[in-house]
Amino acid sequence: MRGPERFLRRFGAGVAAAALGLSFVGADEARRTERRSGFDDMSRETQAMQRDDTANPGMLWVQEGEALWNRKEGTAARACAECHGDAAASMRGVAARHPAFDPATEQPIGLEGRINRCRQVHQGADAFAWESQDLLAVTVFVAHQSRGMPVAAEDPRLAPFRENGRRLFGERLGQLDLSCAQCHDDNAGKRLAGSVVPQGHPTGYPLYRLEWQGLGSLQRRLRNCMAGVRSEPHAYGSAALVELELFLMSRAGGMALEAPAVRP
């Protein structure tokens, strides 16, 4: 899987489809079976914006996150860097394996939750509010250290939570009575109004959305979709959203992380 995906990212869908055609896989069949990042369905301009760190607006949050990483916080007056050192080494691969198993609670914990736990326990600081600029900045700074690494959220201790995430992915919600799977499994690649329905692989979060004019988390994106089918979105940090994240990461297993991605 990883070979073709990297190929797709580098050379674009058309060339990749042609290459698959040579190995006697029809282009339609390839579209149904190959996992694609939302990156592959973006315009050339938006792809270029993500690729170029001087044009990618998400890099502003990465810089802000680096400043927070080095700032003394809380009653302990301790910076993240004082324990974790150089993030380029210590945080490499961390985002690729979250949500991870948290032995203290025996539950899955996402990257944002982990950062807030660390603030409270080791810095004596208050948790950042969900979706606050500070939490997004530290999260994207950490996630950026895993850019290009394969998603590997496969801890077997999380199996029951992953299964619940899978169930939630298939659950019909809201006045429009639609599940995630009905669009992102069964109808990915077709157009909802003008937009290609992506397969829904969370490889780029936190990411910069042109529609948001800002950085946002995967949970924000999940809540957007839930509001879109006219359901009551699950709360930030709820078990349901963490389990959905966990299932989506395992579904994207092996795909390359892109944080901070840019999306339309």
Binding site: G174, Q175, D177, C183, R230, S231
Partner: peptide
């Protein structure tokens, strides 16, 4: 995937509005 346009029963977590 066609929603039922004139139905209110049997739905899950419908938004308050």
């Amino acid at each position: 995937i066609m929603p039922s346009y004139y139905r209110v029963d049997g739905l899950t977590r419908v938004g308050p509005g």
